[in-house]
Simulated assay, not measured.
Amino acid sequence: MVNDLARDVGHSTICEDSKWGPATKAQIQWFQAHFGLKVDGIVGPKTGDFLLYFGDQHYGGKNGYCFSHLPTKDLAGMYVHTQIN
């Protein structure tokens, strides 16, 4: 999902190899900085919320596939159009 957003805003993407490594951590840190989150490279509840909500259109928004599974209530009460400019 981070690569989807990166592509949308013209940021470089990383190879998707299903492994957590330095490139993945750096991409998560970029994502966190992009949204003003704590930049630690860890996908905790807050970063997880933002990944699900602002990532792939299939998952984001009030009607998205994972909306009811957001790990915290921070975003559960809000609706934001998920297209990133």
Rank of each mutant, 00 (worst) to 15 (best):
I14V: 07
F31K: 01
Q83S: 01
P45C: 08
Q32W: 01
Y53A: 03
Q27E: 12
K73L: 11
Y53T: 04
I42N: 04
M78G: 12
Q57H: 07
H34G: 04
W20C: 13
V39L: 02
Y65Q: 15
K38V: 06
H58K: 15
A76H: 11
S68Y: 09
A76F: 08
T13I: 15
P71S: 12
T82D: 06
F67H: 08
G64Y: 02
G48F: 01
Q27T: 08
P22S: 15
K19L: 13
H58Q: 15
Y53D: 03
C15I: 15
G41C: 05
L52R: 08
K19E: 15
L75P: 11
Q32M: 02
P71D: 13
D40M: 04
N3V: 00
I14C: 05
K25C: 12
Q57T: 06
F35N: 06
Q29S: 00
G64F: 01
K25W: 10
T72C: 13
I28D: 02
F31P: 01
Q29I: 00
Q27S: 09
I14T: 07
A26F: 03
V43W: 03
G44I: 06
P45T: 10
G41S: 10
W20S: 13
F54R: 04
K73I: 11
N3M: 00
E16G: 05
K73C: 11
Y53G: 02
L70Q: 09
I14N: 07
Q32S: 05
G10D: 14
K46V: 09
L5E: 02
D17K: 07
K46N: 09
G48K: 00
G55C: 06
A26N: 09
